[in-house]
């Protein structure tokens, strides 16, 4: 597609986005406003992640795109195709082979390395949004570190349900400063956020970018006597037998029969392949 620039966006725009990314990396967890462009895909479908990826990709990169942990969900395919078409980069389904991974709602099970970048698609970047609808007010709360309300929400959960009733998009505090929304990943993935790879978060519709440099301290909010728990379904994967991976529940018959399978498809198939090899 020669009529479009490499990775679709023009160089001016990419420079603007890169400046926002750098600012985000310099102030981990801070939401940097950026002039999000109108992309040829709907808002809410990854326009923020796509712009961050477009500004970060180089022709030598190998790209992996996952949605719900899987490479073959329709929206992941659609985004992967978009970059194949507009950037001509190599793509892969193997987490270890990818230099840039764009994700929606999951962090891969395999530990990421320093030479990898993880780009998150973010729907609502503001962790305080559902406590305070006004953007003007929430920006002030961040500036003044007024985060008491965040714990009030957790307190209310416990008083009502006996437990913190947040299971995904579980808020975190970054380096003791900004409270950040980790995007709607399950809380099972939260501890993985202290990682070697660079993590970039793009929210297109809300025009925000934020970032975590490698090895940044990311703490999930909790109470001392109700500590954060990275929970998952209490099963092993029915396909690969993994006991430490996040599982999808799949209904297999009319009688309510169900099995549990890894949500990370690459992780699961590699394990199955390995078992087959060992058996052979």
């Amino acid at each position: 597609m020669s009529e479009y620039n490499f990775a679709y966006l023009d160089e001016q725009t990419k420079r603007m986005i890169r400046r926002s990314i750098l600012k985000g990396l310099a102030i981990p967890g801070y939401q940097v406003p950026f002039a999000s462009r109108e992309m040829p895909m709907p808002y809410g479908w990854g326009t923020g992640g796509v712009q961050v990826s477009a500004a970060t990709l180089t022709p030598d990169d190998t790209l992996k795109v996952i949605d719900q942990g899987a490479d073959d969900t329709t929206n992941a395919i659609s985004i992967r195709k978009f970059f194949q078409k507009t950037a001509g980069v190599n793509v892969t389904e193997k987490t270890a082979e990818a230099s840039l991974i764009q994700t929606r709602h999951r962090i891969p099970e395999v530990t990421l390395r320093e030479d990898q970048i993880l780009v998150y698609q973010v729907p609502i970047p503001e962790p305080l949004r559902f406590l305070e609808p006004s953007e003007v007010e929430t920006r002030k709360m961040h500036a003044l570190e007024e985060y008491g309300l965040m714990h009030v929400k957790l307190y209310e959960d416990i008083s009502k349900h006996g437990a913190i009733a947040t299971s995904y998009a579980y808020p975190v505090r970054v380096e003791g400063r900004y409270v950040m929304d980790p995007s709607p990943i399950p809380k099972f993935d939260n501890p993985k956020m202290e990682m070697a790879a660079v993590q970039l978060f793009g929210a297109g519709r809300e025009q925000r970018i934020y970032a975590l440099p490698p090895y940044t301290e990311v703490i999930s909010l909790d109470f001392e006597d109700y500590p954060f728990e990275a929970s998952k379904a209490d099963h092993a994967c029915d396909l690969c037998g993994a006991e430490n991976s996040y599982l999808d529940e799949v209904i297999i018959d009319d009688q309510g029969g169900r099995i549990f399978v890894c949500s990370d498809t690459d992780f699961c198939t590699s394990r199955q392949d390995q078992t087959k090899e060992e058996a052979a």
Binding site: E146, Y147, G148, L149, H151, V152, Y155, E156, I158, S159, K160, D222, F223, E224, D225, Y226
Partner: peptide, 26 residues
């Protein structure tokens, strides 16, 4: 805060200054 429980209302100031033990706050 009218949509927060009485306990949450009293606890908010404690949490705002760093109280992090649910049992103590309660």
């Amino acid at each position: 805060r009218m949509i927060v429980s009485a306990g949450g209302n009293v606890g908010e100031r404690l949490m705002a200054v760093g109280a992090r033990h649910y049992g103590d706050i309660r």
